[in-house]
Design a protein around this nucleic acid. Structure first.
Lengths: 201, 201
DNA sequence: ACCTCTTGCTGAACAATGTTCAATTACGCC
DNA sequence: GGCGTAATTGAACATTGTTCAGCAAGAGGT
């Protein structure tokens, strides 16, 4: 059998990404193999490589969806007046999202990328968008400080919360402490927020 | 050929761990395979499994050395009076150590452990020791606060610096920001230290 | 309708991985 | 000196990602 008309090119690409997504959701990225995926969609392994360079490219396509989902979640939390306290809401949203999409999140950040591989542009862009939302919060607290400082504070906070949650997600946070991740995240928000409020002009 | 007298059991175990260590140092843990390691030490692959349960166990043995090295580095930085500012010295030591032993550090924290695998006891113990040294610093700043609070502050700071440095080490920090890791770490120390100094009794 | 040509798909094949185990061999003890 | 035990081998198994010669079915032209 060759050359079937079951799906158009676009349909097949979507089928691959969607199936890969649900397989990762269910069993984690480490269980996703070219063979299992191709079997699941009812095509031969080689077919995958006609639509994607390699398995990494497929996982990367899945990751786009994951980041988009997080961005949506952030947007839905952004209602009413934006202040420093909004950061706590963002923290909750972030933690919920990571918790609810544990395997997808691991796929995003535990995936071994080649050391020389360039960081994809859209990756950076998507994350910049998220961080800009945090920046608003910091600026609301200290409108007298330049935006650049608020951005730095946002990045630092984002990196802190993100990485602590990564530790938790991979089961390694308990190496360091065994407190509740939510409590930790909110304390981090408070610490960084206080620090920014008291910053010298 | 079988049953050689080239090495005693202890010698062979040490040879395996030492060789694995230098192979990780040179090419990273992802390049360490049972076959390459056995070839390097001049034994057959099967031999490894007579002295270790699996490859993970060998990497774990390597990790013991890595954590011991970090503990020594911390100790060597602990001279003179211990104050809050000592935290900055610890941060430098930590960053240097991670930088100088990049591959070993990745082996420690990027290694995929089975989700159900219990955290080794010595792991927690070793890290607790390090954190206790940070606790001293916090306590010197605010002797009026209970030790438990200083410990919490230490863990939070350690987790923050550690995970930011992990991000950097895996080449993912630039997804979030492109500042110098040293600068970031010292800012984290300052923020956490300030927060602790101003803590309510 | 028929003949091409391009495109999509297959599935066997390759190299590499971790791990196991029957067979073999030599050391150490009685 | 013989014998049991312990260590070592290396082939074998089940995986993995990836490639590619071959085949078949669509599209396009006459």
């Amino acid at each position: 059998m060759a050359r079937r008309a079951d799906h158009t090119r676009e349909e097949l690409v979507k089928l691959i990404v969607d199936t890969a997504t649900s397989m990762i959701v269910e069993h984690g990225v480490e269980k996703l193999s070219a063979r299992s995926l191709s079997k699941q969609i009812g095509y031969a392994p080689g077919t995958l490589y006609h639509h994607f360079d390699d398995l990494d490219a497929i996982v990367t396509a899945v990751n786009v969806g994951t980041l988009n989902g997080l961005a949506e979640a952030f947007l839905s939390a952004r209602e009413g007046e934006v202040t420093g306290e909004t950061l706590h809401r963002y923290a909750d949203v972030f933690l919920s999202y990571v918790r609810d999409n544990k395997h997808l999140w691991n796929a995003l950040f535990e995936f071994k990328r080649a050391p020389d591989a360039a960081v994809p542009e859209w990756y950076v862009g998507k994350i910049s968008g998220l961080i800009q939302m945090l920046t608003e919060c910091f600026m609301a607290e200290r409108p007298d400080l330049p935006e650049v400082e608020a951005q730095e504070a946002s990045r630092l906070l984002f990196a802190s919360v993100h990485s602590v949650s990564s530790l938790e997600n991979s089961g390694r946070l308990q190496l360091i402490m065994n407190r509740d991740i939510d409590e930790i995240a909110h304390q981090l928000v408070s610490i960084h927020l206080d620090s920014y409020r008291n910053a010298k002009k």
